[in-house]
């Protein structure tokens, strides 16, 4: 390979065409067919990737076109900071603060559960578990990731919620806490698998160096391996959280659906995706309610973009700087 590139550079001075050299039958270095094949392959890949980007752009455009008219009948400030969401009342109230707070609270609390357990499971799998144990646990966790969210929601609704209601003696088990637990189930596999990849990519030589200096396995994990994998672990956490904030079906089924700003763990909530999913079918096409739901979608989209930017900057910030 090196030889080939070397000779190519030597034989063909810049600017001269490849075809001229191809005249010699033994010279396979400058075959035109190869160049054409490369061009076809490269451009078809480019076109395919452009298509998906264009489609994404069109979705965004549609979201803006349908959402922005909202601000002709309600100000941005009243929309974002308004406490009351009564879109079908006369006159209607379009304030989504309660929905935003519902989304934020359920994401934060589910992260409180999912981050420690996801990261610790990843550490166990990559650093401690005997290979046989890891072979069993890893597919099990990946399977958890492939559970349809409606199944998790259903399980939460019929099994976890009644249990919560009995244990804590509360009026309803469909609340912020139950939703957080179910969402945590969904983000643990994401957090765990990405963190585990990050831990596994830490060179073995770091661990050996640490152990050879008389560090215990635990010291090696906490002082060398985890710090070296921090960028990947942070990315994992943020991607897990963005999965939780965008998740619709689970919160629709178990969060309780009350558009109030939660004051306690056991208050029912109505996160943004749940609101959009449950109301879109009934909102009159291109009516005020319809536009307000799209504006909610824009808000949600901004949140997930924020999470992704955070994930990217975190993976840069904590990159191994030595």
């Amino acid at each position: 390979m090196t030889y080939r590139e070397h000779t190519k550079g030597e034989m063909i001075p810049e600017g001269s065409s490849r075809g001229d050299r191809g005249a010699a039958p033994t010279d396979t270095l400058t075959g035109r067919g190869t160049a054409l094949g490369e061009w076809v392959a490269e451009s078809s890949l480019l076109i395919i990737s452009l298509i998906s980007i264009v489609v994404l752009g069109l979705i965004l455009l549609f979201l803006l076109m349908e959402g922005l008219p909202t601000f002709s009948f309600v100000s941005v400030k009243a929309f974002i900071l308004g406490h009351l969401w009564y879109p079908t009342d006369e006159p209607p109230d379009f304030g989504i603060l309660a929905l935003i707070m519902g989304s934020i609270s359920v994401t934060l609390i589910s992260s409180l559960i999912a981050v420690p357990s996801g990261v610790m499971t990843a550490i166990y799998l990559s650093e401690i578990a005997p290979p046989k144990m890891a072979e069993i646990l890893k597919p099990a966790i990946e399977l958890l990731a492939s559970l349809p969210s409606v199944v998790i929601g259903f399980f939460g609704m019929v099994a976890v919620a009644p249990l919560m209601q009995r244990i804590f003696d509360i009026p309803t088990g469909l609340n912020l806490f139950t939703a957080s637990i179910m969402l945590a189930f969904m983000s643990i596999p994401t957090i765990c698998t990405i963190s585990e990849d990050a831990l596994r990519s830490v060179p073995v030589t770091y661990r050996e160096a640490s152990m050879a200096l008389g560090a215990t396995p635990f010291e090696t994990i906490s002082k060398v391996t985890v710090p070296a994998a921090l960028s990947g672990i942070t990315t994992a956490i943020i991607l897990g959280m963005s999965r939780a904030i965008g998740e619709t079906m689970v919160v629709l089924m178990v969060a309780g659906g009350a558009a109030i700003i939660p004051g306690s763990l056991f208050d029912p909530i109505r996160p943004m995706p749940a609101s959009i999913a449950s109301e879109m079918g009934e909102a009159p096409f291109r009516g005020d309610h319809y536009h307000a739901l799209f504006a909610t979608g824009i808000t949600l989209f901004l949140f997930t973009i924020l999470f992704n930017i955070l994930a990217m900057s975190a993976s840069r910030r904590f990159r191994l700087k030595g």
Partner: peptide
């Protein structure tokens, strides 16, 4: 070891590591 394998830490922290642990 065969390949130099300093930790991704500062020069000082690398040498101090064995003492700290």
């Amino acid at each position: 070891f065969q390949k130099p394998n300093p930790f991704p830490k500062s020069i000082y922290d690398n040498v101090a590591y064995g003492l700290v642990v």
